[in-house]
């Protein structure tokens, strides 16, 4: 009997330890509507164990489709490369502005391109020098714990370790200084539901439409 109780307690403990690793962040607007495509990342205030410091998963490819950057926002970890794929039937001239991670290249129809590794954690604003209305962003973060909220405004993380973290949300249309907001939290004291809820104080700025003003397609730069 004692043996079974010990096993049960151990089993519960194991379950608790495993459950403790998953953690969800939910971002809602001030009128309680889910906010999708918000970049969320967790920066541990302690040294992560070796082996989990660098995200080794494949990056999201930044496509050029219908003369738009798709997705509009991407997020990568410092040290990774950016992947571009021109799915249009025309050439794009992609560039980034400012900062340490500058790049500029022409990408013909159907071509793919991998940039050199981005070595500075910062916001990269991108454009196309042929189609000025095209606009895209990459946020380079210095942590393996990052992602974007889904349509329900939430994102799940599997934490390598419980502890003190800085939780940062970022979006080019987040109407605050630096387009970001950081919250300090201890993952062990966020309640049994393991959900951290972020309520935006201000309405998000409208996302610029990546669309030419002119309705006609066969235009030249006159």
């Amino acid at each position: 009997m004692f043996k079974y109780i010990t096993l049960l307690v151990l089993g519960l403990l194991v379950t608790k330890v495993q459950a403790a690793k998953s953690f969800e962040v939910s971002v809602v607007s001030k009128d309680n509507q889910p906010v999708s495509d918000m970049v969320v990342y967790l920066t541990p205030k302690f040294l992560l164990p070796e082996g989990v410091r660098q995200d080794s998963g494949p990056n999201e490819t930044i496509g050029q489709r219908d003369k738009k950057f798709m997705p509009y926002i991407s997020v990568v970890q410092k040290g990774q490369a950016l992947h571009f794929s021109n799915q249009d039937d025309i050439t794009h001239h992609i560039y980034s502005i400012g900062g340490e991670n500058r790049f500029e290249f022409k990408l013909k129809s159907g071509e793919v391109k991998q940039t050199q590794h981005v070595n500075s954690a910062e916001e990269i604003a991108m454009g196309c020098n042929i189609h000025d209305w095209m606009s895209g962003f990459v946020l380079v973060v210095d942590t393996p714990l990052y992602g974007k909220t889904n349509d329900a405004g939430s994102i799940s993380f599997t934490l390598p370790q419980e502890g003190d973290y800085d939780l940062t949300i970022w979006h080019p249309q987040l109407d605050v200084e630096g387009n970001q907001r950081t919250y300090s939290l201890d993952t062990e004291s966020i309640g049994a539901a393991r959900i951290y809820r972020v309520v935006l104080e201000k309405t998000m700025l409208p996302i610029p439409e990546q669309k030419n003003q002119e309705e006609f397609e066969f235009l030249e730069e006159y």
């Binding site: 002119e214 006609f216 066969f218 235009l219 030249e220 006159y222």
Partner: peptide, 12 residues
Amino acid sequence: SLEHIATAWSNP
């Protein structure tokens, strides 16, 4: 011209 904005200075 604000009319001739297309290929080969055509007016769409």
